[in-house]
Simulated scan of single mutants.
Amino acid sequence: MLGIDTGDRDGRAVVSQGNPDTAHDVAVQVPGTDNDLTNIDEQITRAGVLQKAANDNDAENTAVVSWLGYDAPEVDGSMFDTERAEPRAEDLCSFTHGLRESHQGERAHMTVLGHSYGSTMVGLAASGGGGLDADDIVAVGSPGMTVDHAKDMHINPDHVWVGGAEDDPVSTDFSGLTLGEDPMEKEFGGKVIEVDTEGHGGYWDEGSRSLRNQGRIIAGQDPSEGDYHS
């Protein structure tokens, strides 16, 4: 447990699987809509699944942090603007830069991942000031990252990875409407990873290519040849 606050609306919590101060590969997973302290156990489980996926791809030592450091929107109109992300975007930047400062030994490979509205939070934070100081950014099931182009997030666009299931209504129907350009589009400038899972919550299904690709990115590797396209 890296941090908890039960007094801020639905509550906030930052929990890590593994020690980010000593890990060779560090990932920060930002959850999206309809997440709060009542279902934080689901996010902790998701962090563990991502940690295992990275380790299965020859990562030496991985820590995955579930960063619910903001008041995520409910399934209502709050999903369609940046009001929920704006107050805590700087906190996410401070957190990732703090991980850099507290890390012991050789600089870690850091990946910041956002799911659903979590990718909106990641994009907003990454586009401000000094960015997130991440080596890779991943967005799955994204309604938009508040920017027009991957390069607007202070990172090489070749290290911005996006994925969306064919039947995920968030990325297929809502992305590009109110929260920035659709990151799945070629004009956005990122790289689209292969997704073989279904729905908005399947990206971490055991044995899936969707999960494997995320694990490879966390481990500092490109997804396997043919598993992504520009």
Rank of each mutant, 00 (worst) to 15 (best):
A108P: 15
A108S: 15
A108N: 13
H109C: 02
H109A: 04
V112S: 01
L113G: 02
G114P: 12
H115K: 10
S116E: 14
S116N: 14
S116G: 15
Y117L: 08
G118D: 15
G118V: 12
G118Y: 11
S119Y: 07
S119C: 11
T120I: 07
T120L: 04
T120A: 14
M121P: 12
M121D: 06
V122F: 11
V122G: 12
G123A: 05
G123H: 02
L124V: 07
L124W: 05
A125Q: 02
A126F: 00
G128Y: 02
G128M: 14
G128Q: 15
G128I: 01
G128L: 09
G129F: 03
G130L: 05
G130R: 13
G130E: 13
G131D: 07
G131C: 08
L132F: 12
L132D: 02
L132Y: 02
D133R: 03
D135H: 12
D135S: 06
D135K: 10
D135F: 06
D136I: 07
D136R: 15
I137Y: 10
I137T: 07
I137P: 11
V138R: 04
V138I: 15
A139K: 05
A139H: 09
V140G: 04
V140K: 01
V140S: 01
V140A: 01
V140H: 04
G141T: 13
G141D: 10
G141S: 14
S142W: 02
S142Q: 05
P143T: 03
P143H: 04
P143Y: 01
